[in-house]
């Protein structure tokens, strides 16, 4: 640099140290920029993930092996596998697991099938294409708390629109359905909310995949005389299999952790009972109740771990199943 040289030439006493020190400073800056800065850029993610993601997951296992109550800080110490073995005899946990799977089945299957049909419609040449796509996302951006409360009114026994509409076709005119009285009806009501929320979102995922199918695949299929319906099941669905599997895994992870809908379906929302007799109490809801209503964090942590393992197993099974059903070999 000119300034460095100008400063160095008049005085012959200490030019080399000044110059070399300057060089090393710039060198160091450069080396810092190349070697360290990349790590600094990615550090925030890893820092936050370790503190608020990974550590809690691992620490959860420790909590699950201890006595840990919010109302009784004195009671500490190792509980061994007490919290875990209790799960096997806990009727509430069994009931919650049963409800979770029931609602999961009633919501996932219709949700994904309808999403496929809607996606295949959206995949045609349409007027106002963007408009249709955006309208499919209305439920996705609506807070689940808000939509669930609307559905609560919809599914009320005496003045609800659901019973009124069913009454028009002659169902339940004598004894209106009490949507909160038994398992099946409450599951249907909650599954309806879940379906409403996620059909459009999944349809867009499928649509994206459908649009990346090469056109000549369809041209070839004309020889077989495939109609639009067969075209969808025989060509389109197998071609978008990876995304179908992806959505199945997503809805497994989401569906087995269902929380907001069953919470707010209760007429007294924050009790976390899931109905007078726990008709629709899900596992995520039970974890909340055990942890923050019964104040037994140790047991809630054990439940979380159990749920985690169940999700892993079910997600793997569903992946295999979907792969088979959508025409995969293996």
């Amino acid at each position: 640099m000119p300034t460095t040289r100008a400063a160095a030439e008049p005085t012959t006493r200490r030019p080399p140290p000044v110059r070399s020190r300057r060089m090393t400073w710039r060198d160091r800056l450069h080396r810092f920029d190349v070697r360290v800065v990349p790590y600094l850029l990615i550090a925030p993610f890893f820092l936050l993930f370790f503190v608020f993601g990974l550590f809690p997951m691992v620490f959860n296992a420790v909590v699950a092996l201890r006595h840990w109550r919010l109302d009784d800080p004195e009671l500490t110490g190792w509980a061994g596998f007490e919290n875990f073995s209790r799960l096997f005899t806990d009727g509430d946990f069994g009931n919650a697991l049963y409800n979770t799977f029931g609602i999961f089945l009633l919501s996932t299957v219709p949700q994904l099938l309808l999403a496929l049909v809607i996606a295949s419609m959206l995949n045609r040449r349409l007027r106002g294409q963007t408009w249709w796509r955006v309208s499919a996302l209305l439920p996705y951006i609506t807070p689940i708390t808000a939509s669930t409360l609307v559905f609560n009114v919809f599914f009320s026994r005496d003045l609800g629109m659901a019973n009124w509409a069913l009454g028009l076709v002659g169902i339940g005119t004598e004894n209106p359905i009490d949507w909160r009285a038994d398992k099946l009806h409450s599951w249907i009501a909650i599954a309806t909310m879940v379906n409403w929320k996620w059909i459009g979102y999944n349809a867009l995922l499928y649509l994206a995949a459908m649009q990346s199918i090469p056109r000549d695949v369809y041209e070839a299929s004309a020889l077989d005389g495939a109609g639009p319906w067969r075209q969808l099941w025989r060509i389109t669905v197998p071609m978008i299999r990876p995304v179908v599997i992806f959505t199945v895994v997503l809805s497994t992870i989401g569906g087995l952790q269902l929380f907001t809908e069953p919470m707010l379906f209760d007429l007294n929302a924050q009790t976390a009972r899931g109905g007078a007799g726990g008709e629709w109490q899900t596992v995520a809801q039970l974890i909340y109740k055990v942890g923050w209503k019964d104040l037994n964090l140790g047991y809630a942590a054990a439940m979380s771990w159990a749920l985690f393992l169940i999700i892993l197993v079910v997600a793997a099974l569903n992946t295999l199943l979907t792969n088979r059903l959508s025409g995969g070999r293996k």
């Binding site: 993601g53 809690p56 964090l297």
Partner: peptide, 8 residues
């Protein structure tokens, strides 16, 4: 599913 670490 990081929701499962909520207790900890």
């Amino acid at each position: 599913p990081n929701q499962l670490g909520v207790v900890a």
